[in-house]
Design a protein around this nucleic acid. Structure first.
Length: 666
DNA sequence: CATGTGCACC
């Protein structure tokens, strides 16, 4: 029987068994040897599903390993958790010894355990209810099956020695390369007795800090295989690796693995998983998990859980709810700290709500007495830079100096970038000098911004020279660096150079991203090479890149400017009601394109569509319309549009007046 | 031995 059909059999069995907590089914014939089942009595709160299916086919061992490891896990829980029931522990040990010595058989063991297990399952089982686990997790459950277990390693796990660990401790800290880590791991696994799990965890952590996530998971799996009694720390590192690889589902699968090994997940585990969901923009699930944690008291939410959830809310633009949660955590006796405040402050700054950000900042400092750190200040400075409020920026920098908070390279990079975007390259260079004076080393981000700055001013020679000098500085250009230079070439219509650079990206082992393609497309359209643009667009999609709003805008704009308004319009109609068409910029482009081609009726129809779609015309939309009407000599209508602006709450700006004036003059 | 906050390209 295949795994999937086993699974459907299990599904079939769920219904009649709903309501029981743990059921071991022994009556089933081969190939289902054991079926351990968790289902929950509250159908509307929990999904019921089998947690583990132990099919002998997956366990090429004569012993009934799944149960053995299950016992082992429980035993280690009883042994290591001081609060666990001592009598239960003694009883369990007794039963287990009887089993090992052949005094009782497994069925008897299971029967005897059954009643006792309930309390244990209650203890560890409820978290499984988060309903994320199966079926995608089943793959990993099996992959990570912790066979552990010869009896020897079980005995070993209870009699650890730390004597030999000391030399290892000093060595793990020096782990600098993956090779090094693997060698050390091999050496550790040769030792008898095995080094303690702590040493293994330290190694795991070193590997995960080097961002070698899959290697880290591999080592974790090896640990399970050779019988290292992995604990909640090991699990957490492994789960974090999954999450960092955007494989949070696999992280949840490891949670199932936790249960298997009687490792009780706790607040660290949950915050890691919550963060994983948020990383993947799975905010609804993140909220669901967060609520469950609190509702079912799966863990006592600490400041990290709250701040993670707040980050998630901010990420999807729910600043208000984020602030609400900030208030709530405070009410519930969990004191917000600088991280929580900084998270929200940063989000407000990104949304250009700088006044709200400062309000919160003042609340934090004055009312709560929480000291801001370099990150808080960097967020504020970034927000101010985006609004070109330079006076306030220097005020904050002064404030930092007074508080002896030293700006970091990131802080400087923001300043460099802001100056470059303003075309103030000299000042950006001055900031770089300061970085160097302070003994820090500008990184690829710093120089990418500077290249961008040169490009913006059309100083392509300078940009190129800087780009070429990066290697001698020991820096490797990344896609962003390439994008800056490529954009520069495109903007100055040096399309051959841009194309050359574009091909170089792949040659250097990098992958052009959506920005690269968008920039390149824009360049091709600007020099009128619509056919080449079309080809590139197809290539982009074959690379699995999905056009975003910006790409879409570039294409529409490109088509319109190349007198292909009809093509632009048919693309627009093809896209239909998608999110891409729900932005006013799209209408601005098309209306402008249509009216420039003297298709004013189409422009008028599009303008009419805007309100029908529930969108709001922008000042620019009005200006484009007025300009189009004037061009056709429909001055009366243009004037009507002008009057309409005031009514709709979009007061005319200087462009409006210029356009209207021009219309009347010509 | 573990978890949460800030930067770069259209």
């Amino acid at each position: 029987m295949s795994y999937s059909s086993t699974f459907s059999l299990v599904k079939f069995l769920i219904v009649p068994l709903k309501g029981s907590l743990l059921i071991t089914i022994q009556k089933l014939k081969e190939p289902l040897n054991y079926l351990v089942f968790l289902s929950f009595p509250l159908p509307y709160l929990f999904l019921s599903f089998p947690v583990f299916i132990f099919n002998r086919a997956f366990f090429p061992f004569t012993l009934s390993l799944p149960f053995l490891s299950f016992y082992q896990g429980m035993l280690s829980t009883f042994l290591t958790k001081p609060k666990s029931n001592q009598r239960l522990c003694v009883w369990f040990k007794h039963q287990f010894t009887s089993l090992c010595n052949g005094i009782i058989n497994e069925s008897t063991m299971i029967t005897r355990l059954n009643s006792r297990l309930h309390c244990f399952i209650k203890l560890t089982g409820s978290f499984i209810t988060t309903s994320f686990l199966l079926p995608s997790s089943s793959r990993l459950c099996l992959q990570f099956t912790p066979h552990s277990t010869s009896l020897a390693s079980l005995l070993h796990s209870t009699s650890f020695s730390n004597i030999d660990d000391r030399p290892l401790l000093s060595r793990y800290q020096k782990v600098t390369s993956l090779d090094h880590a693997f060698n050390l791991f091999d050496e550790m696994t040769q030792r008898r007795p095995l080094p303690s799990v702590v040493k293994f965890n330290q190694l795991l952590n070193a590997v995960s800090k080097m961002k070698h996530f899959s290697s880290c998971l591999y080592l974790f799996k090896q640990m399970c295989l050779i019988g290292v009694p992995v604990n909640e720390y090991s699990m957490n590192i492994a789960i974090k690796c999954c999450c960092q690889m955007s494989r949070t589902n696999d992280g949840f699968a490891l949670l199932a693995c936790c249960f298997r090994r009687a490792v009780v997940p706790y607040v660290f585990t949950f915050s890691t998983l919550l963060d994983g969901l948020i990383r993947e923009d799975r905010i609804i699930e993140a909220e669901r998990l967060f609520k469950k944690l609190i509702k079912h008291k799966l863990c006592e939410p600490n400041v990290v859980i709250y701040s993670t959830m707040i980050k998630g809310l901010c990420k999807v633009g729910n600043n208000d709810i984020a602030v609400g949660l900030l208030r709530l955590m405070d009410e519930r006796g969990c004191k917000p700290n600088v991280v929580v405040y900084s998270t929200i402050i940063d989000s407000l700054c990104k949304d250009k709500l700088i006044d709200d950000a400062f309000k919160l900042f003042n609340e934090m400092v004055s009312h709560k007495g929480i000291l801001p750190n370099v990150i808080t200040y960097t967020s504020l400075i970034h927000g101010l830079c985006n609004l070109c409020r330079w006076d306030k920026v220097s005020k904050l920098l002064k404030e930092m100096e007074d508080l002896r908070i030293s700006p970091s390279l990131r802080t400087f990079n923001i300043l460099v970038d802001a100056f470059c975007k303003e075309g103030r390259v000299d000042e950006a260079e001055a900031v770089i000098d300061i970085i160097v004076e302070r003994g820090e080393v500008p990184d690829i981000v710093t120089y990418s911004s500077l290249i961008d700055g040169y490009c913006l001013r059309g100083e392509m020679t300078k940009a190129r020279t800087l780009f070429d000098s990066l290697t001698s500085k020991g820096l490797v250009p990344n896609v962003v660096t390439y994008n800056s230079l490529l954009n520069g070439y495109c903007k100055s219509l040096k399309i051959e150079e841009a194309m050359h650079l574009f091909h170089e990206i792949t040659r250097k082992g990098l992958k052009p991203d959506i920005v690269t393609y968008s920039g390149m497309l824009q360049g091709l359209f600007r020099v009128g090479r619509c056919g080449a643009a079309r080809k590139l667009f197809d290539e982009m999609q074959s690379q699995g890149l999905i056009p975003n709003e910006c790409t879409y805008g570039i294409i529409l704009d490109g088509l319109c400017n190349n007198h292909k308004v009809d093509e632009a319009l048919s693309l627009f109609h093809m896209v239909g009601d998608s999110r891409l068409n729900s932005h006013i910029v799209v209408y601005n482009i098309l209306i402008e394109g249509a009216s420039k081609c003297r298709k004013l009726d189409i422009a008028k129809a599009l303008f009419h569509d805007i309100t029908l779609k529930g969108l709001q015309p922008h000042v620019r939309t009005f200006n484009i319309m007025i300009s189009g009407l004037c061009r056709e000599g429909q001055l009366k209508e243009a004037k009507g549009m002008f009057l309409k602006m005031g009514e709709s709450g979009f007061p005319p700006n200087n462009v409006t007046y210029r356009v209207l004036l021009l219309g009347y003059l010509i």
